[in-house]
Design a protein around this nucleic acid. Structure first.
Lengths: 225, 225
DNA sequence: TGTACATCAGTGAACGCGCGTTCACTGATGTAC
DNA sequence: TGTACATCAGTGAACGCGCGTTCACTGATGTAC
């Protein structure tokens, strides 16, 4: 008996996809990344995102991918980049039209944990070292540096929210930049570990127990507008 | 051109290993786990720990592994279990003969981060969801539950240290169990993310910035005996 | 003390598989004249 | 307006590879008599 998955047809599903029009070949790129994201979400491991599996999911032949990505790793890197963009957007949406500084900070933290919980496999890959592993290889489409920058966006947003708290007297932090890093790491620890062991009996207030001290919030029972 | 690694001889290195004596076949089990740990440390990814690679590293033939492990995943699970045991030992050693409660807590935190930094790849795999992925499969040698329990040991040690701090007035925590979880998650966030981006400009005092608030320590500049 | 034999610790060859990648190609579509 | 042609968006078949796993085996070693 083998652990391998049962053989699946290697050809695209019949009629799954109509060829793009001339000049619109680039559209396939997005479909490839989307297909990779689907596989990642369903299978849950980076290994499952093989070039051939992506092609099957996208309804194209495997070699077609090479028009858009130089190698397999580049697809994963693109997925991660997309994910960071999604995260930034999600965090901004989480803010809504809130204006009260502490409520804004808490909303961003909520949004962060929410993002990780709603697509746990993707979250793991974002911080799984993909861009480290492929740091040596030059990728035409997405460079590892791009990803690093995108992570900075999130950190910057947390720092900005924290700064407003300090200015409004909602936080006693004396070094916003450094405390933002600490807060982010706390959020990351919770988000990451929760994706691994959902069954663990997490204290019900674990989120506040991490956010409030790390952000040096003054009012533990902050208003949420 | 292929990304595959250059072909390596599939047979063990000549004379690399003498057969165990009768009745001592079990010794090979430990050698297999040790070989897997070496590959993990050197290659840095879980995928690199293939059954055949482990056999090569251990100087044995691939089928020999089946006398000791029912399948590939079981080897990885054994590596993770070993790693948790190592972690627990390392933390106890970090305590040394310290008696001052705050110093003990800080020493355990130091030890934790130290452990992760000294074998980053192994640390990643410990919390990488191996035992989730294989939760469904029954393994004769190591069950996923065993691993979960081992993680509890570490958490328990942190909680015990924190409790002594509270009793001695070194911490203002009012819920030691929950705050121990929060502290551990903070440590995990830092440890995990540091293994991924060593290049990131971490604030120099990031460790204290996480530990002190999460443990609700009273004296930020605690004595270290 | 000698010897037949069971047991144990492995080995070597083979299997079918899915993988990443290359190559020569095809057929639709827009464009120049 | 019609047609030859270049370009583009892909395809299909093939490659060599390392993988996990199975199977029948081998040779050393301890044990019973």
């Amino acid at each position: 008996m083998t652990t391998r998955v049962a053989r699946v047809s290697t050809t695209p599903r019949a009629g799954a996809r109509a060829r793009n029009r001339r000049g619109e070949g680039g559209l396939l790129r997005d479909e490839i990344v989307a297909a990779a994201a689907v596989i990642l979400a369903e299978a849950g491991t980076e290994e499952a995102v093989t070039l051939r599996a992506v092609a099957r999911q996208a309804g194209i032949s495997a070699p077609s991918i090479y028009s858009h990505f130089p190698h397999r790793q580049a697809i994963l890197l693109a997925v991660v980049k997309d994910a960071f963009t999604d995260l930034a957007r999600h965090l901004h949406e989480s803010l809504g039209d809130r204006t009260e500084p502490t409520a804004r900070l808490l909303a961003v933290c909520d949004g962060y944990l929410d993002f990780a919980a709603s697509s746990p496999h993707r979250y793991r890959v974002m911080f799984g070292g993909v861009w480290n592993a492929s740091a040596a290889m030059a990728s035409a489409s997405v460079s590892p540096d791009d990803v690093g920058e995108l992570g900075q966006d999130t950190l910057g947003l947390i720092a900005a929210c924290l700064r407003r708290c300090v200015e409004a007297g909602g936080s006693t932090s004396t070094d916003v930049e450094a405390d933002a890093v600490a807060l982010w790491l706390g959020l990351h620890g919770l988000a990451h570990q929760r994706t691994a062991s959902a069954a663990f009996p997490w204290p019900g207030d674990i989120q506040q127990r991490i956010v409030v001290p790390l952000a040096h919030l003054v009012h533990e029972r902050a208003r949420r507008d």
